[in-house]
């Protein structure tokens, strides 16, 4: 069986800006997480997969079709595009029904009702979208992607703007959709989120695919990497002396109201730091990861990926 999503040697550039660079992957049934910081090229990839733009180089196939030349692919493809766009003058039900009809669903009214029920939006379904919270809007957007029962789902940051309870519910829903055998590609810039949904993770940095594997594997890769943590404490000197005895700590810099720790193993530091503080009776006011955001971790990953022969 051919993979639902086949991206082969795809590059995309806008003028001088390279958005995607020689990206290749094939999907498997189940949830695939697309992890990358803002501007890494995730939405550009979704645009290509949905047929909204053509690759500057390479080929994109969705269910064996070229989505650029064949809008019929949308009968079998569900898309939650970037942002929170919805027609403000339509009700949730009208929105989902219209889009289901526009994708050739035989009974759009029933399909819309079922999809709205799936995302828990039955009660407000007949209210205008205009007054909806961001979470509710995202729900409607998810419902329209499900209404035509597609084999493939492309979800661009579907958890953005949701509160924790909604996030949990949607993570569950997305897992369930994957377990039903659908091919789900879901993007996020938060590793922990992707971890809970995906069987497989693609990490994209500056338009390049730099890592691919199970969430645990990618997690380990990230944990191994060096990181910098800022610690605010009442006794920086005392803590600094203790930290320097740890083998994973490379250096400690003191500043006005705290210290900056460079470590080769962030996971180790986060487990050892509270223990040290308790032992030394030092108060920790704040522990702030610096340069631990995905972007710098990814940059490092990119560098190592290049070192490995790219």
């Amino acid at each position: 069986m051919t993979a639902a999503l086949q991206v082969t040697g795809v590059s995309k550039w806008f003028g001088d800006t390279v958005a995607l660079s020689d990206l290749s992957f094939t999907s498997a049934p189940g949830v695939t997480g697309l992890l990358g910081h803002n501007g890494a090229g995730k939405s550009t990839l979704f645009d290509l997969l949905a047929g909204f733009s053509s690759p500057s180089q390479g080929t994109v196939r969705v269910l064996g079709l070229d989505p650029r030349n064949d809008p019929s692919v949308h009968a079998r493809l569900g898309l939650v595009p970037d942002g929170d766009g919805l027609w403000p003058f339509l009700t949730a039900r009208q929105t989902v029904e219209f889009l289901a009809r526009s994708r050739g669903v035989a009974d759009p009214a029933r399909a819309a009702a079922a999809a709205l029920d799936t995302v828990g939006m039955t009660t407000p379904a007949d209210r205008k979208v205009h007054g909806f919270s961001k979470g509710m809007r995202q729900r409607v957007r998810l419902a329209q992607a499900l209404a035509h029962d597609p084999e493939v789902l492309l979800l661009d940051e579907p958890l953005n703007g949701l509160d924790p309870a909604q996030r949990r519910a949607d993570v569950e829903l997305i897992r369930r959709l994957g377990a039903q055998g659908r091919t789900v590609l879901v993007s996020s810039h938060i590793l922990a989120e992707v971890e809970r949904m995906a069987d497989r993770v693609l990490v994209v940095v500056n338009g390049r695919l730099v890592a691919e594997g199970t969430p645990a594997g990618v997690q380990a890769l990230l944990a191994q990497s060096a990181r910098t943590v800022r610690v605010e404490t009442d006794e920086p000197r005392k803590l600094a002396a203790l930290l320097l005895k740890e083998i994973t700590v490379d250096s400690v810099t003191l500043d006005t109201d705290g210290l900056v720790v460079h470590t080769s193993d962030g996971a180790h530091l986060s487990s050892v730091l509270p223990q040290l503080a308790v032992k030394a009776k030092v108060l920790l006011h704040r522990v702030i990861p610096l340069g631990e955001d995905l972007e710098s971790v990814f940059t490092r990953l990119t560098a190592s990926a290049r070192g490995a022969g790219r």
Binding site: A50, G51, F52, H74, A75, L79, D82, G85, S102, R141
Partner: peptide
């Protein structure tokens, strides 16, 4: 994006 994600 929604309008174009249709078979229309």
């Amino acid at each position: 994006g929604l309008l174009l994600a249709t078979t229309l």
